[in-house]
Simulated assay, not measured.
Amino acid sequence: MDLKTRLKGRVAIVVGGASGMGKATAHRLVQEGARIVIVDRDDAAAKAAAEEIGAQATHFSANVTDEASMEAAVAYAANLYGQLDIAVNAAGVGASVALVNQTVEQFKQIQDINLTGVFIACKAEARQMITQGQGGVIVNFASTNAVQPAEGLAAYCASKAGVAMFTQVAAMELSSNGIRVVGIGPGLTDTPMVQRVLSVPGAREAFTENILLKRPGRPEEIAASVAFLVSDDASYITGSTLYVEGGSLTQRYPELSRRQSTQAPVVAGGSR
Protein backbone atom coordinates (compact mmCIF):
# COMPACT_ATOMS: atom_id res chain seq x y z
CA MET A 1 0.00 0.00 0.00
CA ASP A 2 1.21 3.51 -0.86
CA LEU A 3 1.88 5.23 2.47
CA LYS A 4 0.96 8.57 0.89
CA THR A 5 -2.64 7.35 0.52
CA ARG A 6 -2.93 4.89 3.42
CA LEU A 7 -5.24 7.28 5.30
CA LYS A 8 -6.85 8.91 2.27
CA GLY A 9 -10.40 10.08 2.94
CA ARG A 10 -10.09 9.85 6.72
CA VAL A 11 -10.54 12.63 9.23
CA ALA A 12 -8.41 12.86 12.36
CA ILE A 13 -8.28 14.99 15.46
CA VAL A 14 -4.90 15.39 17.20
CA VAL A 15 -5.25 16.63 20.76
CA GLY A 16 -2.03 18.27 21.91
CA GLY A 17 -0.96 18.60 18.31
CA ALA A 18 0.69 22.02 18.49
CA SER A 19 4.12 20.77 19.56
CA GLY A 20 6.34 17.78 20.17
CA MET A 21 5.15 14.32 19.24
CA GLY A 22 1.61 15.56 18.72
CA LYS A 23 2.75 18.00 16.05
CA ALA A 24 4.91 15.35 14.37
CA THR A 25 1.89 13.03 14.37
CA ALA A 26 -0.28 15.69 12.76
CA HIS A 27 2.29 16.09 9.99
CA ARG A 28 2.53 12.34 9.42
CA LEU A 29 -1.24 11.77 9.24
CA VAL A 30 -1.57 14.45 6.59
CA GLN A 31 1.37 12.99 4.67
CA GLU A 32 -0.56 9.73 4.57
CA GLY A 33 -3.67 11.40 3.19
CA ALA A 34 -5.79 12.37 6.22
CA ARG A 35 -7.45 15.69 6.91
CA ILE A 36 -6.87 16.82 10.47
CA VAL A 37 -7.87 19.23 13.20
CA ILE A 38 -5.10 20.20 15.60
CA VAL A 39 -6.58 20.74 19.04
CA ASP A 40 -4.51 22.49 21.68
CA ARG A 41 -4.82 24.87 24.60
CA ASP A 42 -2.21 27.09 22.94
CA ASP A 43 -4.30 28.53 20.12
CA ALA A 44 -1.46 30.50 18.54
CA ALA A 45 0.81 27.44 18.41
CA ALA A 46 -2.02 25.27 17.06
CA LYS A 47 -2.75 27.81 14.34
CA ALA A 48 0.93 28.02 13.41
CA ALA A 49 1.20 24.22 13.24
CA ALA A 50 -1.87 23.97 11.02
CA GLU A 51 -0.57 26.68 8.69
CA GLU A 52 2.79 24.92 8.52
CA ILE A 53 1.10 21.67 7.47
CA GLY A 54 -1.13 23.25 4.85
CA ALA A 55 -4.63 23.04 3.47
CA GLN A 56 -5.35 19.58 4.88
CA ALA A 57 -5.08 20.89 8.45
CA THR A 58 -6.97 23.32 10.62
CA HIS A 59 -6.97 24.08 14.33
CA PHE A 60 -9.28 24.48 17.31
CA SER A 61 -8.53 25.87 20.76
CA ALA A 62 -9.61 23.58 23.60
CA ASN A 63 -8.56 22.47 27.07
CA VAL A 64 -8.44 18.70 27.66
CA THR A 65 -9.47 19.15 31.27
CA ASP A 66 -12.75 20.81 30.28
CA GLU A 67 -15.48 18.47 29.02
CA ALA A 68 -17.51 21.12 27.18
CA SER A 69 -14.35 22.36 25.49
CA MET A 70 -13.45 18.92 24.17
CA GLU A 71 -17.01 18.20 23.05
CA ALA A 72 -16.89 21.42 21.06
CA ALA A 73 -13.58 20.41 19.47
CA VAL A 74 -14.93 17.04 18.37
CA ALA A 75 -18.12 18.64 17.04
CA TYR A 76 -16.04 21.16 15.10
CA ALA A 77 -14.04 18.42 13.38
CA ALA A 78 -17.13 16.35 12.57
CA ASN A 79 -19.08 19.33 11.26
CA LEU A 80 -16.17 20.67 9.22
CA TYR A 81 -15.27 17.42 7.51
CA GLY A 82 -18.49 15.44 7.92
CA GLN A 83 -17.01 12.65 10.01
CA LEU A 84 -14.39 11.62 12.57
CA ASP A 85 -12.40 8.46 11.88
CA ILE A 86 -9.23 8.87 13.94
CA ALA A 87 -8.49 10.49 17.29
CA VAL A 88 -5.03 10.90 18.80
CA ASN A 89 -4.83 12.06 22.41
CA ALA A 90 -1.29 13.34 22.85
CA ALA A 91 -1.55 16.22 25.33
CA GLY A 92 0.60 15.74 28.38
CA VAL A 93 2.78 17.37 31.03
CA GLY A 94 5.21 16.27 33.70
CA ALA A 95 7.46 17.46 36.50
CA SER A 96 10.38 15.80 38.30
CA VAL A 97 9.80 16.29 42.02
CA ALA A 98 10.52 13.99 44.95
CA LEU A 99 7.18 12.83 46.30
CA VAL A 100 7.88 14.25 49.77
CA ASN A 101 8.31 17.68 48.18
CA GLN A 102 5.52 17.54 45.64
CA THR A 103 2.37 19.46 46.42
CA VAL A 104 -1.07 17.94 46.16
CA GLU A 105 -1.91 20.63 43.60
CA GLN A 106 1.03 19.57 41.37
CA PHE A 107 0.08 15.91 41.64
CA LYS A 108 -3.55 16.61 40.79
CA GLN A 109 -2.68 18.84 37.85
CA ILE A 110 -0.59 16.11 36.24
CA GLN A 111 -3.41 13.60 36.71
CA ASP A 112 -5.97 16.08 35.38
CA ILE A 113 -4.11 16.66 32.12
CA ASN A 114 -2.47 13.29 31.49
CA LEU A 115 -5.21 10.93 32.67
CA THR A 116 -8.50 12.75 33.17
CA GLY A 117 -7.82 14.64 29.95
CA VAL A 118 -7.55 11.34 28.05
CA PHE A 119 -10.84 10.20 29.58
CA ILE A 120 -12.61 13.44 28.64
CA ALA A 121 -11.25 13.44 25.09
CA CYS A 122 -11.85 9.73 24.53
CA LYS A 123 -15.42 10.02 25.78
CA ALA A 124 -16.27 12.80 23.34
CA GLU A 125 -14.48 11.09 20.44
CA ALA A 126 -16.11 7.73 21.08
CA ARG A 127 -19.59 9.25 21.26
CA GLN A 128 -19.08 10.87 17.87
CA MET A 129 -17.82 7.63 16.34
CA ILE A 130 -20.72 5.66 17.81
CA THR A 131 -23.19 8.18 16.38
CA GLN A 132 -21.63 7.79 12.94
CA GLY A 133 -21.90 4.01 13.18
CA GLN A 134 -18.79 3.36 11.08
CA GLY A 135 -16.23 2.57 13.78
CA GLY A 136 -12.93 4.37 14.19
CA VAL A 137 -9.58 4.35 15.97
CA ILE A 138 -8.51 6.17 19.14
CA VAL A 139 -4.84 6.38 20.18
CA ASN A 140 -3.93 7.43 23.71
CA PHE A 141 -0.42 8.57 24.59
CA ALA A 142 0.98 6.64 27.52
CA SER A 143 4.75 6.33 28.14
CA THR A 144 7.39 3.80 29.05
CA ASN A 145 6.80 5.20 32.53
CA ALA A 146 3.47 3.39 32.51
CA VAL A 147 5.47 0.25 33.26
CA GLN A 148 8.90 1.58 34.29
CA PRO A 149 9.09 3.44 37.63
CA ALA A 150 11.32 6.48 37.97
CA GLU A 151 12.38 8.41 41.04
CA GLY A 152 10.90 11.89 41.09
CA LEU A 153 8.12 10.98 38.67
CA ALA A 154 5.48 9.56 41.00
CA ALA A 155 2.69 11.68 39.56
CA TYR A 156 3.76 11.19 35.95
CA CYS A 157 4.24 7.42 36.24
CA ALA A 158 0.88 7.02 37.97
CA SER A 159 -0.89 9.04 35.30
CA LYS A 160 0.64 7.09 32.41
CA ALA A 161 -0.02 3.73 34.04
CA GLY A 162 -3.61 4.90 34.33
CA VAL A 163 -3.70 5.75 30.61
CA ALA A 164 -2.50 2.25 29.68
CA MET A 165 -5.17 0.58 31.80
CA PHE A 166 -7.87 3.03 30.70
CA THR A 167 -6.99 2.17 27.10
CA GLN A 168 -7.63 -1.52 27.78
CA VAL A 169 -11.00 -0.85 29.39
CA ALA A 170 -12.06 1.54 26.63
CA ALA A 171 -11.09 -1.07 24.02
CA MET A 172 -13.29 -3.64 25.78
CA GLU A 173 -16.29 -1.32 25.95
CA LEU A 174 -16.04 0.10 22.44
CA SER A 175 -15.14 -3.01 20.44
CA SER A 176 -18.81 -3.80 19.76
CA ASN A 177 -19.05 -0.42 18.02
CA GLY A 178 -16.18 -1.21 15.71
CA ILE A 179 -13.87 1.21 17.52
CA ARG A 180 -10.29 0.22 18.21
CA VAL A 181 -8.57 1.88 21.17
CA VAL A 182 -4.80 1.55 21.38
CA GLY A 183 -1.96 3.13 23.31
CA ILE A 184 1.44 4.43 22.28
CA GLY A 185 4.21 4.39 24.87
CA PRO A 186 7.16 6.55 23.80
CA GLY A 187 10.50 6.30 25.51
CA LEU A 188 12.79 9.29 25.87
CA THR A 189 12.12 11.46 22.82
CA ASP A 190 13.70 14.76 21.75
CA THR A 191 10.86 17.24 22.26
CA PRO A 192 10.72 20.73 23.80
CA MET A 193 9.50 19.29 27.11
CA VAL A 194 12.28 16.70 27.30
CA GLN A 195 14.96 19.19 26.25
CA ARG A 196 14.61 20.86 29.65
CA VAL A 197 15.69 17.61 31.29
CA LEU A 198 18.43 16.77 28.79
CA SER A 199 19.98 20.25 29.14
CA VAL A 200 21.03 19.46 32.71
CA PRO A 201 24.77 18.59 32.75
CA GLY A 202 25.22 14.83 32.56
CA ALA A 203 21.54 14.08 32.03
CA ARG A 204 21.72 13.19 28.33
CA GLU A 205 24.56 10.74 29.00
CA ALA A 206 22.71 9.18 31.95
CA PHE A 207 19.62 8.58 29.84
CA THR A 208 21.23 7.47 26.60
CA GLU A 209 23.46 4.88 28.25
CA ASN A 210 20.23 3.21 29.38
CA ILE A 211 18.89 3.03 25.81
CA LEU A 212 20.09 0.12 23.69
CA LEU A 213 20.13 2.30 20.56
CA LYS A 214 22.16 4.93 22.46
CA ARG A 215 20.06 7.95 21.52
CA PRO A 216 16.70 9.54 22.28
CA GLY A 217 13.90 8.91 19.84
CA ARG A 218 12.78 11.46 17.28
CA PRO A 219 9.19 12.77 17.28
CA GLU A 220 8.87 11.57 13.67
CA GLU A 221 9.61 8.00 14.79
CA ILE A 222 6.77 8.10 17.30
CA ALA A 223 4.49 9.63 14.67
CA ALA A 224 5.27 6.79 12.26
CA SER A 225 4.15 4.27 14.87
CA VAL A 226 0.94 6.20 15.50
CA ALA A 227 0.24 6.28 11.77
CA PHE A 228 0.62 2.49 11.67
CA LEU A 229 -1.72 2.01 14.63
CA VAL A 230 -4.53 4.09 13.08
CA SER A 231 -4.19 2.42 9.69
CA ASP A 232 -5.81 -0.77 8.42
CA ASP A 233 -2.40 -2.41 8.73
CA ALA A 234 -3.10 -2.53 12.48
CA SER A 235 -6.71 -3.70 12.12
CA TYR A 236 -6.20 -6.62 14.53
CA ILE A 237 -4.69 -4.50 17.32
CA THR A 238 -6.83 -3.08 20.11
CA GLY A 239 -6.39 -2.65 23.85
CA SER A 240 -2.60 -2.90 23.60
CA THR A 241 0.01 -0.21 24.19
CA LEU A 242 2.90 -0.20 21.74
CA TYR A 243 6.14 0.84 23.44
CA VAL A 244 8.50 2.69 21.09
CA GLU A 245 11.60 3.15 23.22
CA GLY A 246 14.85 2.06 21.60
CA GLY A 247 15.23 -0.84 24.02
CA SER A 248 15.20 1.28 27.17
CA LEU A 249 12.71 -1.03 28.88
CA THR A 250 15.45 -3.65 29.08
CA GLN A 251 17.40 -1.33 31.37
CA ARG A 252 16.99 0.43 34.71
CA TYR A 253 15.64 3.98 34.58
CA PRO A 254 18.35 6.60 35.43
CA GLU A 255 18.60 7.36 39.12
CA LEU A 256 17.32 10.67 40.41
CA SER A 257 20.80 11.55 41.70
CA ARG A 258 22.02 11.67 38.08
CA ARG A 259 19.69 14.47 37.11
CA GLN A 260 18.27 17.53 38.81
CA SER A 261 14.82 17.55 40.32
CA THR A 262 12.69 20.58 39.64
CA GLN A 263 9.61 21.97 41.27
CA ALA A 264 8.88 24.35 38.42
CA PRO A 265 5.17 24.96 37.81
CA VAL A 266 3.48 22.45 35.56
CA VAL A 267 2.13 24.10 32.39
CA ALA A 268 -0.46 22.51 30.10
CA GLY A 269 0.63 22.16 26.54
CA GLY A 270 1.16 19.76 23.70
CA SER A 271 2.67 16.32 23.94
CA ARG A 272 6.08 15.83 25.48
Results as ranks from 00 to 15, higher is better:
N89H: 02
V97I: 15
Y81H: 12
N89A: 14
Q83L: 01
A95W: 00
I113G: 14
L115M: 11
A90Q: 05
L84T: 03
A95Q: 09
V104N: 07
V100G: 02
N114C: 09
A91R: 09
V93A: 14
E105H: 05
L80E: 05
A95D: 05
Q109S: 11
Q106D: 14
A95N: 12
Q111T: 02
I86G: 06
Q83S: 07
I110F: 02
A91M: 10
V100I: 09
A77C: 14
G82D: 06
L115C: 10
A87R: 05
G94R: 07
Q83N: 06
G82P: 03
F107M: 05
Q102C: 06
L84K: 03
V93D: 10
K108G: 08
Q83E: 08
K108I: 01
I113D: 12
L99C: 12
N114H: 09
L99S: 14
N79A: 15
A78I: 00
A91S: 15
T103F: 04
D85T: 01
A91H: 13
Q102V: 04
L115A: 09
V93T: 14
V104Y: 06
G82A: 07
Q111N: 05
A95C: 09
Q111C: 08
V100M: 13
S96H: 03
L99D: 07
E105W: 02
A98G: 10
V97L: 08
V100A: 13
G82M: 11
F107E: 04
S96T: 12
V93I: 15
A91Y: 10
N114V: 05
N114R: 10
A90W: 01
N114E: 08
L115P: 08
V93S: 13
N89M: 12
N114S: 09
V88M: 12
L84D: 03
N101V: 03
A87C: 13
L80A: 07
G82S: 04
L115H: 14
D112A: 15
A98F: 03
A95I: 10
G82I: 05
G94E: 11
A77R: 00
A90F: 10
I86L: 13
N101E: 09
L80C: 03
V93N: 09
L115I: 07
V104C: 06
A98S: 10
Q102I: 10
L99A: 15
L115N: 10
Q111K: 04
Q111F: 13
E105A: 15
D85R: 00
A90C: 15
A78C: 05
N114Y: 09
F107D: 06
N114W: 05
E105I: 02
N101Y: 03
D112G: 02
T103S: 15
A87K: 11
N101R: 12
A77H: 00
L115T: 07
Q111E: 12
V93M: 11
I110G: 00
Q83W: 02
N89F: 01
N114T: 05
V88F: 15
L80D: 01
F107G: 10
G94F: 06
V100Q: 11
A91G: 13
A90S: 15
G82Y: 10
